[in-house]
């Protein structure tokens, strides 16, 4: 794991080399230095997960008037998990999250890649334009959600622009139509995170060595050919990382969606995080929430462990 990010081929050897000469002082200091982080990880991982397993086997709710550790009085075994398997709202939220991902990530990737190609060599005004492009990703996501909430009002600026093109007043109720609401939330996500794809892909593109490209130029290879046979293959790892980051973040998506639509109309924009939030805060069936959360954690742990293993393999 440690050498996943190491760019120096000899770094791993160096580590083992120093390890041989390490005295007791180094070992002790190393342990002390890593202790706070270890404790924090333990604090947020071990105890909560045990607690989550326990609660997920009960029908406990904070409204029951008994403390969580006496939740065994409401023991229901695996019933929550059985409920989960046949909960249409859960599966539709999961499916919707996947759709959002399947639209957002490719669009962000293609836009980011296109912009990165335009920025790879020097031109006048590059620095200022580069910084300006990055602005959306630094806006607080909740504020971004609010911006788009304003933009998509039926008397708001989006319709105003459309009216200008249509030549007549357009009053589309973006956020109260199920399909259009999902579209609007997706637009806000693409707006905010395309710059991130651009940023990472550009850094990856710049770090592709020039020598092979120069040789290809001398041989008369066209730009398209050079791009697809030399540049893109060499960016493989960084593309995987950029896409993985967005897939992970899109899976958690909450802020802008919740602020724009509250998951509605109905459940039209209810992603998995919004669904869990609503069951937690509004329906307050925490035993069930624990079961959902645990199921997600287990699946994600397996998927992420496999993905990281694969990525390390790809990099070596």
């Amino acid at each position: 794991m440690t050498d996943m990010t190491s760019t120096h081929p000899g770094a791993a050897d160096l580590h083992t080399d120093t390890a041989l000469h390490e005295g007791a002082e180094e070992k002790r200091l190393g342990l002390w230095l890593t202790l706070p982080a270890q404790l924090l990880v333990l604090f947020i991982a071990l105890f909560p997960i045990l607690m989550q397993i326990y609660i997920s086997l009960t029908d406990w709710s904070p409204l029951d008037g008994i403390p969580w550790y006496r939740a065994y009085e409401l023991w229901i075994g695996l019933l929550n998990y059985a409920d989960l398997a046949s909960d249409p709202r859960f599966w539709s939220a999961l499916w919707r999250t996947c759709i959002v991902m399947a639209i957002c990530v490719p669009v962000q990737f293609l836009l980011g890649l296109g912009l990165a190609i335009l920025f790879v060599d020097d031109f006048r005004g590059k620095r200022v334009l580069y910084s300006t492009i990055l602005v959306p990703m630094m806006v607080v996501p909740a504020v971004a959600g609010y911006m788009f909430f304003m933009l998509f009002q039926s008397g708001g600026p989006v319709n105003d622009i459309l009216s200008m093109f249509a030549g007549r007043p357009v009053t589309i109720a973006w956020l109260s139509d199920p399909d259009l609401a999902l579209f609007a939330t997706i637009v806000s996500d693409i707006w905010q995170w395309t710059p991130l794809m651009f940023l990472i892909l550009l850094a990856g593109m710049v770090s592709v060595p020039q020598d092979q490209q120069m040789a290809a130029v001398l041989l008369g290879a066209s730009w398209t050919r050079r791009f697809f046979t030399i540049v893109l293959p060499r960016m493989k790892t960084i593309i995987i990382i950029a896409v993985a980051i967005r897939v992970i973040e899109n899976f958690k998506v909450f802020d802008n969606f919740y602020i724009m639509t509250g998951g509605g109309p109905g459940v039209a924009t209810e992603t998995i995080s919004i669904y869990i939030y609503k069951v937690t805060q509004q329906e307050l069936i925490w035993g069930y929430v624990a079961a959902i959360a645990l199921a997600i954690l287990i699946v994600l742990s397996i998927v992420s462990a496999l993905a990281i293993k694969k990525l390390r393999g790809a990099q070596q």
Binding site: A45, Q52, T280, A290, A293, I296, L297, L300, S304
Partner: peptide, 14 residues
């Protein structure tokens, strides 16, 4: 890294 991957919503009950 795994801590980062997990959605915060999935550990919020505990």
């Amino acid at each position: 890294i795994q801590l980062r991957i997990f959605p915060p919503m999935a550990v919020m009950i505990p």
